[in-house]
Amino acid sequence: MLDGYGDEGHFVTGWDVDPAGVYSVLSKAGTAAKSMSDTGSAMQGNLEEAASAAGTLTSQYGPYSSTVGLVGSALGQFAQAWGRDLLYIAKRTSKSLDGADQATRCYVAGALEQAANAQREAAKEPKVDLPGEGGGHGGGRPQR
């Protein structure tokens, strides 16, 4: 983290960055994030498939109609409850990795103020909007 300006107006850095080490960690973290994203996508598809396969409830009185069954309904509620958290994790991970990359590139180029700005921006909470929510419902960390 950068400290700011010193007594004589010179920019003072508290960073001691090993760019090769940062890029190695970013590469490994990016691979793990991709795996996590793939798993989340597979889980979403599996939940939809399981909810569909769980059957429906059919009214025995007219008009005959079917609604989602109890298991399907529970799976839908689970997906809805955890969807925001999973999206938050994905956005937070992406923002952190991108910020670390940008800050390191600025540091290597000697642009220490830009590196500090990149770090500050990466630390901000990501906006999370689920599909179908409309604007204004996003915001930082999901609340339970």
Results as ranks from 00 to 15, higher is better:
Gly99Leu: 06
Glu113Met: 06
Phe11Pro: 00
Leu112Cys: 02
Ala103Gln: 09
Glu48Asp: 15
Gly134Arg: 03
Val71Asp: 01
Ser59Val: 04
Ala116Pro: 01
Leu130His: 10
Thr39His: 12
Ala54Gln: 03
Gly135Lys: 15
Ala100Lys: 09
Pro131Cys: 08
Gly69Asn: 07
Asn46His: 12
Lys95Ser: 14
Gly4Tyr: 02
Gly134Ala: 08
Gly136Pro: 05
Gln80Ser: 13
Val17Leu: 12
Ala122Ile: 04
Leu2Trp: 00
Gly132Cys: 10
Thr31Ile: 05
Thr13His: 04
Gly134Glu: 05
Gln119Leu: 03
Ser24Trp: 07
Thr93Tyr: 10
Ser66Arg: 11
Thr56Arg: 03
Ala103Lys: 13
Glu8Thr: 00
Thr31Asp: 10
Gly76Thr: 09
Ser96Trp: 06
Thr56Gln: 14
Trp15Glu: 09
Arg144Glu: 13
Arg84Phe: 01
Asp18Leu: 08
Asp85Tyr: 12
Arg92Phe: 12
Arg84Gln: 04
Gln114Thr: 03
Ser52Lys: 15
Gly62Lys: 12
Val12Cys: 07
Ala74Gln: 11
Tyr5Cys: 02
Ala54Met: 09
Gln119Met: 07
Ala53Trp: 11
Gly110Phe: 01
Val68Arg: 15
Gly9Tyr: 00
Leu97Cys: 07
Gln60Ala: 12
Lys91Trp: 05
Ser73Gly: 10
Asp98Thr: 13
Asp3Val: 05
Asp85Ala: 04
Asp85Leu: 06
Ala100Thr: 11
Lys34Asn: 12
Ala20Tyr: 11
Gly72Phe: 00
Ala32Trp: 04
Glu133Tyr: 04
Val17Gln: 06
Met1Ser: 03
Gly136Glu: 05
Ala103Trp: 08
Tyr5Asn: 01
Thr31Ser: 12
Thr67Trp: 09
Leu75Lys: 02
Gly132Gln: 09
Asp129Lys: 10
Trp15Met: 13
Glu8Ser: 00
Ala53Asn: 14
Glu121Ile: 14
Gly83Asn: 05
Lys124Arg: 10
Cys106Tyr: 14
Pro131Asn: 07
Ala100Trp: 05
Glu48Pro: 01
Lys127Ile: 05
Ser66Ile: 02
Thr56Asn: 14
Ala54His: 03
Leu2Ala: 13
Leu47Asn: 08
Ser37Tyr: 11
Ser66Phe: 02
Lys28Leu: 11
Gly134Val: 10
Gln44Glu: 11
Leu112Gly: 04
Gly6His: 03
Glu48Tyr: 11
Ser59Trp: 09
Ala118Gly: 09
Thr31Lys: 14
Gly139Phe: 09
Gly40Ser: 15
Glu133Trp: 11
Ala42Gln: 14
Glu49Lys: 15
Ala103Cys: 14
Ser52Gln: 15
Asp129Met: 09
Gly83Cys: 11
Glu113Ala: 07
Gly62Pro: 13
Ser65Cys: 11
Ala115Gly: 15
Val108Lys: 00
Asp85Asn: 03
Val25Met: 13
Arg84Val: 01
Gly83Gln: 05
Met1Ile: 01
Gly69Leu: 08
Leu112Glu: 01
Lys95Thr: 11
Pro131Trp: 12
Pro131Gly: 09
Leu26Lys: 09
Pro63Tyr: 06
Gly30Asn: 13
Val22Gln: 09
